[in-house]
């Protein structure tokens, strides 16, 4: 029997530990995602947002923790990407305007909820075909490597996406060429209504990496500091030229798959259990209060400030113009 030639990740990310202010900042970002999406849900029921709309509520700690470890790196994600975009620094105004289909949106109202892009933030999009974007991350990794950029590419996808051919092929190439890519499978236990045990014999998607000899790790993603630390370690490993990493980050979505899914397939009590014990915002709030001595007033002030930002995003989206019909044929071919 041959041994798995699988390298292991460093124990430490090398990132400086967060102080109260640092953690409060991450808390603020999680609250911002939560509030922007709660408003998006409201706008959807008012038919201001149309089509598909997949909420990230419950998973915020993953994107926010990862963003604080990779501020200047490239990200690419699937269609549940409002939270990733906001965490990566895309403006709430532009995200909301995109959801509203307005000319001021991140993608000029052409992409909508599933296709948020922001080149300045190195946010390379949201994609709608499950698994379809995963190979693109390798191309980004290839360019990073050729140009010695010292960056990495973080590629987000779901547990369901880890069943696509494109995903498997991408793992093969990434490891063969030791590309600086961190594959992040956000395992929220469901692909639409199909629970993980009904779609896969193995339920830890990071084990997929063993087939190509890639470094891997499974971690729980509800604690934003822990996510920061382990994504930081993975990014350090990839950045230093050791090749790609596959992380499975365990998380949980509180809402249905999309706005039209009542999510009746969950076992009774499951959602309540996650909300009680694995709610990322509540966990961080408790840590701020208990371990960092941050006052309730300070936390309330964060909520107040975020509320203003989220409401401003709504107003901005609402008052922005529709795309100009004269622009219909713009952007089909590059100029």
């Amino acid at each position: 029997m041959s041994e798995l030639p699988t390298p292991s990740l460093p124990q430490e990310s090398g990132l400086p530990p967060l102080d109260a202010e640092g953690l409060l900042k991450l808390y603020r970002e999680m609250v911002l995602i939560r509030r922007v999406e709660e408003l998006a849900a409201k706008a959807y029921t008012m038919r201001k947002i149309l089509g598909f709309c997949h909420l990230y509520i419950g998973q915020e700690s993953v994107a926010v923790g990862a963003a604080s470890a990779t501020p200047d790196d490239y990200w690419i994600a699937a269609y549940r990407e409002h939270g990733h975009a906001l965490a990566k620094g895309v403006s709430a105004n532009a995200v909301m305007a995109e959801l509203f289909g307005k000319a001021t949106g991140t993608s000029l109202g052409l992409g909508g909820s599933m296709h948020i892009f922001d080149k300045d933030a190195k946010f390379m999009g949201g994609y709608g075909i499950v698994g379809g974007h995963v190979p693109l991350a390798n191309g980004v990794g290839w360019a990073i490597k050729q140009r010695n950029e010292g960056r990495v590419c973080l590629c987000y996808f779901g547990d369901g996406a880890a069943h696509q051919g494109a995903f498997f092929e991408a793992l093969c190439l990434a490891q063969l060429w030791k590309l600086p890519v961190v594959f992040i499978c956000e395992n929220n236990f469901y692909a639409m209504g199909t629970s993980i045990d009904r779609q896969s014999h193995l339920t830890d998607m990071s084990l997929r990496a063993n087939g190509v000899g890639m470094a891997r790790e499974q971690l729980r993603g509800f604690d934003v500091e822990h996510v920061r630390e382990r994504v930081g370690a993975a990014a350090k490993f990839a950045r230093e030229g050791n090749g790609p990493v596959m992380l499975e980050i365990i998380t949980y979505r509180h809402r249905g798959h999309s706005m039209s899914d009542p999510a009746k397939y969950r076992p009774k009590g499951e959602l309540e259990e996650y909300k009680l014990n694995s709610e990322p915002l509540a966990l961080t709030k408790r840590r701020l209060e208990q371990d960092f001595g941050v006052s309730a007033e300070r936390i309330a002030a964060v909520h107040q400030e975020v509320e203003a930002v989220a409401e401003e995003a709504w107003n901005f989206a609402e008052s922005s113009p529709d795309p100009d019909p004269a622009t219909l044929y713009d952007h089909v071919y590059a100029e």
């Binding site: 089509g51 289909g101 307005k102 109202g109 909508g112 529709d322 019909p325 219909l328 044929y329």
Partner: peptide, 16 residues
């Protein structure tokens, strides 16, 4: 369909 990838915004989609 007009010869352009489907836009999200309702007013453009109607045109398409």
């Amino acid at each position: 369909n007009r010869d352009v990838p489907q836009p999200y915004a309702t007013n453009l989609e109607k045109l398409v």
